[in-house]
Design a protein around this nucleic acid. Sequence first.
DNA 1: CTCGACCTTAGTGTTGACACTTGCTGTCTT
DNA 2: AAGACAGCAAGTGTCAACACTAAGGTCGAG
Lengths: 209, 209
Amino acid sequence: MILEGELPLGGVVNEVVIAQRFNVSRGPVREAVQRLQGLRLVTREPYMRARVVSLSTRDLVEIFQLREAVEGMACRLAADAMSDEALAALMKELEETRRAGLNAYQPEGGPFDLHQRIALACGNERIRHLLAEELYHLLRLYRRRSGAMPGRREQAFDEHWQIVRAMFNRDPDLAESLMRSHISRATAALIASMERKEVSTEPEAPDAA
Amino acid sequence: MILEGELPLGGVVNEVVIAQRFNVSRGPVREAVQRLQGLRLVTREPYMRARVVSLSTRDLVEIFQLREAVEGMACRLAADAMSDEALAALMKELEETRRAGLNAYQPEGGPFDLHQRIALACGNERIRHLLAEELYHLLRLYRRRSGAMPGRREQAFDEHWQIVRAMFNRDPDLAESLMRSHISRATAALIASMERKEVSTEPEAPDAA
DNA sequence: CTCGACCTTAGTGTTGACACTTGCTGTCTT
DNA sequence: AAGACAGCAAGTGTCAACACTAAGGTCGAG
């Protein structure tokens, strides 16, 4: 419901309503909400209503800093762990997406997401979970609100290409460095974009009447 | 109960027993266990009993790889975010611990834990939570079982000193690099130690009769 | 007219009981 | 004697109801 936009960003989460919405009792809903709290998708304080995260600029920058570190390490590990065949397949898919994708690109779950693929292939289950389960949903949530920024797609393709090339050459140091630069640039573009059009992540102007 | 050793490493977690142990119903116990599952301290599969993690060598290596990436980033951020006064205090405390601590060192929660201090001071709430809340408990759990390895303490002190010095000089690149090397060395020592005395983290030899 | 205390109400925290699944054990069949 | 099937017990998943808390509204006093 959060990812589908059925629950607005700063909105409150009413356990009873959710329970009726799914024809279930409050118990399972409580457990689900607590798992979402574990994933930092909702915040909660004792006896207060649970709220969907608001995704402030600061939150996004923090997430991107964490991604820079962890995805860099995932890239390093994957450069060692992936087989030659898997790397070749990765390059092939990337090239296909580049050719076909510039006009018709399915944003839904992505037919090809390099970051996701690297996280899945890095061989470290804990890192995989952090990137592919915990942070992935937050990024989807953000992208859904504020669309991609123009012009960065082609640049991102080039950077992806260099990353995969470094992995193919079995150069973990370079692969990690390139991935970190890639995410760092994305962070800078993000900050610039946010500052330009102070996107309304505010829940709703309270505006006490 | 897990950290105190009251629940053995591979042991099962019985909700009813825990509930009676704390004079409470099963509801709160379920929620607590689910939070522990979120912290990867217990594993769970549908309708099966919950089990305390077993902390295999592979798990520890994965945790240390993650720490290398994230603590490195935390160190970089802290080198920018911390005030001169805070850094000076950190150096002072480190020196005092070195002088007084070589014989009488309180392992309980630590009067001075550089890694913890950096995590708290890095200014990134998400990284702080990951290091100081999620991974910290797992490391405590591990250290409780397998004591520190001899000889590495003095070396660790030197490495800590260099790290703080780089932070004091406002050199984030160096600080991150030193922290990563520090953790990487600890990982190597850990692996060597584990291979030497295949520590019995196994729950119990099932040994089907 | 404004401010503060009381009350109402929506919503969360907790409880005890019931339904369902799982693994074992004992017995039966081949 | 070995394998399989039914019954049993332990434990988890779910539910509806009760206790408690915090916010919003109302009434009265200054």
